[in-house]
Write a protein that binds this DNA or RNA. Structure first.
Lengths: 213, 213
DNA sequence: CAGTTGCGGAGTGATTCGCTCCGGCATGGT
DNA sequence: ACCATGCCGGAGCGAATCACTCCGCAACTG
């Protein structure tokens, strides 16, 4: 039997997913009305659950950090260093990890988020270090490079535009095409290529998470 | 001697470059005021040159198509099929080709744009075909894949966020890091990798240009 | 010095924003 | 069957921002 509580919980999940989607499409300009509409609920219901827009974004950030850490742990659990790293990258992109960049600088960073972020950094660094030692990741690619890659693939301009055009029928094909692009980028991470141009990026460039604060 | 006309021309170039930058950052929500401010000119000056926002965007689109075609011709002029293709991709990303996606569906498409776009498609297809024949591009990567890749790298979330935080000192480092990411993706295009997941994307997915209209 | 030309930005109505508040309806107890 | 309860959607609010206009000022010309 479906109770009212079930509906509330389903609405909550839909809300958070919709918030990620709309954020990925509209960036920092994402409006509360758009998020509620995408989730299929009223604005009033959204504001009953979260007092302000910022509270919703903070909740989203915490969820995002949790997902990052869980994905990193699962990646480390894989005995194959390369498969573990690749699954981590794919999981983060699919989750919409990179779509939170635009709000990272706009919300207040709590102690909880700082702690989770530091933990995530450790796990991720270990994931990359293990791949380097196994020789399955090119030496000149740093952890920050991969972080930036995840953030770069956070938004999907093709999906955004098709959605804006109302071509929902093409969305699955667009998602598949995006996975192909990610596979291409992952292949570029494997050893056997020329050195990358420029100097390795510093940690301060990766702003999607909050470990520096 | 610097005449008033020189200043006008410099302002015009600055305006178009600023429009590309702001479009890349803010997407379809890019405001005329933001473009004028980035270009360092007044709003009135912008509206003296372009009657409406759409007229500016149309001019930007034509310039973008011209750049695409010139870059493709230069790529074909390179005797090395791989270097020609790589230079084309880098040139398009650097120019900000992918940043025009958000407005592609919002402006009226002129006959001129359609013709230029078709010409660009031919050149680009030839560039890809040549690389395939020379065996320097993996067989399962299509021209549409590469188009989507260019569009994917059109926006730079790292640069966007640093600019929003006012960390202009880090912008050169961010641009360099982005070039490293593109180099990684380009390496992933070379032969010797596993087949890409899913089926090859169809032309209708690439909406950055207008050849289908 | 008068005339002209390109310039910046305050101002305008329309739109959109985050957010509040209330009428309506499904639910559950009696 | 019937009311009481509580969650739901969306109309409505002031504030902010949008695309765009208009005008006074500064710089150049003859």
């Amino acid at each position: 039997m479906i109770t009212r509580k079930d509906i509330t919980e389903r609405n909550d999940r839909a809300l958070l997913q919709a918030a990620r989607d709309v954020l990925a499409e509209d960036g920092a300009h994402a409006s509360v009305a758009a998020i509620a509409a995408r989730a299929g609920i009223g604005i009033g219901s959204l504001y009953r659950r979260y007092k302000t827009k910022e509270e919703l974004f903070q909740r989203l950030s915490v969820l995002s950090l949790d997902h990052w850490n869980e994905a990193a742990e699962q990646g480390l659990a894989d005995p194959d260093p390369w498969m573990g790293l690749a699954a981590f990258v794919c999981g983060c992109v699919e989750f919409g990890q990179g779509s939170l960049g635009p709000i990272a600088g706009a919300i207040e960073v709590t102690q909880e988020m700082g702690a989770k972020s530091r933990r995530g950094d450790e796990l991720f660094d270990e994931l990359v270090r293990r791949a380097h030692e196994a020789g399955v990741l090119r030496r000149d690619v740093t952890a920050v490079d991969i972080s930036l890659l995840i953030e770069q693939f956070g938004r999907s301009p093709v999906v955004d535009q098709l959605r804006k055009q109302g071509r929902d029928d093409l969305l699955p094909a667009a998602a598949e095409a995006r996975r192909r692009l990610i596979a291409i980028a992952l292949d570029g991470l494997r050893p056997g290529h020329d050195p990358l141009p420029g100097s390795p990026p510093g940690k301060e460039l990766f702003t999607g998470r909050w470990s520096s604060q």
